[in-house]
Design a protein around this nucleic acid. Sequence first.
DNA 1: GTCGGATAGATTCCTTGGAATGCACCTGGC
DNA 2: GCCAGGTGCATTCCAAGGAATCTATCCGAC
Lengths: 146, 146
Amino acid sequence: MAGSGELFVDLVRVETRLWNAVDVRLRAEHGLRLGQYDLLTVIAGRHECRVLDLVHEVAITVGAASKAVDRLVEAGWCRRVANPADGRSSFLELTPSGVSALSGARRTYEEEIARWTSRLLSPGALEELANALRTIRAALEAEQRP
Amino acid sequence: MAGSGELFVDLVRVETRLWNAVDVRLRAEHGLRLGQYDLLTVIAGRHECRVLDLVHEVAITVGAASKAVDRLVEAGWCRRVANPADGRSSFLELTPSGVSALSGARRTYEEEIARWTSRLLSPGALEELANALRTIRAALEAEQRP
DNA sequence: GTCGGATAGATTCCTTGGAATGCACCTGGC
DNA sequence: GCCAGGTGCATTCCAAGGAATCTATCCGAC
């Protein structure tokens, strides 16, 4: 039981430090923060992405998501397009500049992550880690989103 | 390589959601936020704990740590005690009220974490997860702290 | 003993997410 | 067709971490 707590602390510490490591590199080399990269990736990967989709994917509030989108729009990487089927919402899409910011940063992003994951662990250990995280994530998401 | 990116996204999503899940329970049942619980645990677990120790353990800035301590002090859970060997710093220690807040919340903390970790994964998978996180954490900490 | 550079941490301003609120719009029941 | 309740999201205020700055103190070289 105490082991779970310790595992959780390790999880939190790893996430914090790894996020910071990737963030520092993206900023330094591409002028892009990891939170922005994350959202751009979500938007790029989903047809007719809305603010609500960001909320569910990233687990932040509607207000936070809306403001984060505002900042992406202000940076010129994203735009809101009216949803013809629903006047309450709009679709988010990357601008050419956003697409290019994203693809420009992808290699740095994957390189830094690989440095602290796939290059540190054996293929088997990596696979187990990935499986465990996928399992836990699926369970959490099933519980937190009807 | 793309697998590393996916693993990282899963890691971030799991941490965010698991943190929120534990936080919600601690708040509802003990009036304590997980960030506060985390710091109280660090302070309790270290003899002559200083702000700098929180900074290194939790990977936040000195300013953030100082203000977080202010809030713990204001809540009555912690106090600053002058460091006789160094006039620039003070030692942090839990008050009786802090000790009791921490122990009161411990079961809820461990229960909620177990719910999403040890109760979801096989013992073998849990062990592999713990090992992988420990390995990655050690590498990140070695790099980020001389 | 002096002093310059380093260190510990408090404080202020800025950024970003959370909580709450309000508005425009949608949908299902009648 | 109307309407009440629900939904999507923008906006405002609050909370917490980051960046920058400043002050008090420490320490090693001289």
